[in-house]
Amino acid sequence: MSTTPEQLYNFGFIDEDSKREVRRQILKAIALPGHQVPFASRDLPIARGWGTGGLQITMAIIAADDTLKVIDQGVDECVNAVNLRRLLQRTTGVTTTVDTTAASIIQTRHRIPEEPMRRDQILVLQVPMVDPLRWVEPNLERATIMHGESDYGRMWVYMYESVVKAGDLRIATQYPVIVAGRYMMDTTPIPRWDVMRLHNAEALFLFGAGREKRIYAVPPYTTIEPLQFEDFRFKTEFVAGQICARCGAQDAFLTSHFVVDSDHPDGGHWRSSCSDTSFCDKRVLVNATNQEAPK
């Protein structure tokens, strides 16, 4: 055992052959848009289910001159985002940023940043559940065959039943889509809000599931069709009149939170604001500058 307090790890933590394996599977995932490609998936010093798939993709692709952004729920300062960024920074030394437009690699859980991503950027998504067919066929061997044969009938029945019973397609996040007209893909726990932002985008999207040991990809300019019926179209979470209490954005994904207010009879009140805090902060800053300008 080493007597030095901190060990010296390989650049990007995992060893070079492990990186090669992830790299090979990423290339295959791109050549097969939406298809789940198995990979060996190393054990990391982060628990399974906490972003080990996204981490391994980032570790395999990252270079010393990259600029990295890590978010969770759209937030850079979220505890889990902080923790993953800390591991990546300590084992690569790359520059990190909270600004979406300044990053070359963005690793994320649950959100796609609000600001449109460019062709020189890669979004790495952490995936908990890989297979949309899991809802109807938990057995991996059979689900793999169903994907191979484009046998998606049972999923359509599931969607139909949910419309009849719940009045909406019951799946809130992990919404199933058809990628490039062939594979049915789980969109990770991103809200419906973000689903169509995968469609014909400029950036490359890489999905990593460490515990489930799968990698999949949506290349740029690839069609994404959410599962929907002619008389029952796919809807996002958008509610008419929604507005961010902080920056005033009307066209962004909002989450609710409690604001402490001692004057209020309930000790505070609930309000909605952008889940993408970097986007929101920028807008708050611009609003403030605009207000100051006339003086």
């Binding site: 390989n10 650049f11 933590f13 090669r20 692709i61 990252i62 690569t92």
Partner: peptide, 16 residues
Amino acid sequence: MTTTFQPPSLFETFCT
């Protein structure tokens, strides 16, 4: 923040 990694070799940089 302390960094605890070995700088990549020439070949590793080429590969990446």
